[in-house]
Design a protein around this nucleic acid. Sequence first.
DNA 1: ATATAGATTATAAACATTATCAAATAATAA
DNA 2: TTATTATTTGATAATGTTTATAATCTATAT
Lengths: 145, 145
Amino acid sequence: MSERRLQEALETLKESGVRITPQRHAVLEYLIKSMSHPTADEIYKALEGKFPNMSVATVYNNLRVFRDIGLVRELTYGDSSSRFDCNTEKHYHIICEKCGKIVDFHYPSLDEVESLAEQVTGFDVTHHRMEVYGICNDCKKKEQH
Amino acid sequence: MSERRLQEALETLKESGVRITPQRHAVLEYLIKSMSHPTADEIYKALEGKFPNMSVATVYNNLRVFRDIGLVRELTYGDSSSRFDCNTEKHYHIICEKCGKIVDFHYPSLDEVESLAEQVTGFDVTHHRMEVYGICNDCKKKEQH
DNA sequence: ATATAGATTATAAACATTATCAAATAATAA
DNA sequence: TTATTATTTGATAATGTTTATAATCTATAT
C-alpha cells in the first residue's frame, strides 16, 4: 500500500526529470511510511542512522524539489518550522492546540467560498487553505487526569 | 472612526491591566490607522521617526501582549514573517500570490466544517482559519502589460 | 511625591532556512 | 568504455526573524 505510493512518487520524479538519488529515495520513503507531517529537522534526524553524512541542506533542497513538482505540500502554521505532507489527495487538517498533533479529515471542497471571494474582490482565485484547531482526545483525557 | 477604535483598544488595555506606554500607543495607532496587515518590522520602521530609540524587541513584545489579550490576530503565511491584524471582527483574507497584497472579505462563518471535523476526529474544536489565494486586479493588469 | 511592578532598550542568542562552492556522483555523448 | 557535462551533495557560512537577558527607566497606585 505505502509501497505502491512510493513507486508512484518515484515515477513522478522520473517524469519530471528529477534524479532519483539515495537521499531523495529515503526522504520520500520516510514521508510516505511515517504517515505524519514531519518537519525538515525531524526527517533529518530520522535518517541520521542510514545517512550519517547527509546534510540538512540536502533535506531542505529535496523537500523544495518535491514541493515544486507537486509531490508534497508545505504546511506553514504558527510555529517556527514548516511541515511537509505527501498526501496529495484533497483534504484538510485539524490541529491540536496542546500537543500539536495534526489529523487529516475530508470535507467537500469549499468551492462556494472561492467563487464568492472572486466576485467580491476581483481576484482570480487559484486555491484556498483551511485548518481547524482544537483539543485532541488524548489531551482532553490528560486534562481530567 | 479609527479614532474611536483606538480609544476602544486603549480601554481594552486598561481593563486587562496592561500599561499604556507611548510605544504601545503608537503601535496600536499604526495598526488601526494603516488599515493593513503589517509585519513587526514594518511597524518598527514606520515608527522610527517618532521613536528613534525604540527597540525591535519592544514591537515584538507588545504585539504579543496585544495578541494575548485578543486585540490583534497574528497571521502566519508561508513567507518568513508574521503579519498582524487588529480587525477583530470575524472575516477572512484573500492573498495575492504575485504581490502579497492581503484583502479582507466576509463569509458566513464555516460552522458546518467545524462541527463535522469535531464529529469525525473527536477533537473539541475551538476555531478555524481559512485563506483564499489568487491574483489581484493590479497584477492581472500588469501581466497583460 | 514615592515606591515598585512592569516596560524599555541594547545586545546577544536561538532558530529555521538559504546561499555558496568544492567535491562527488550520475547522465549523456563519443 | 571513456570522456564530457550537468546535477547533486555536504560542509559551512550567511541571512533573517524572533526571543532571551539584564541594566535602566517609567506608568501607575498609594
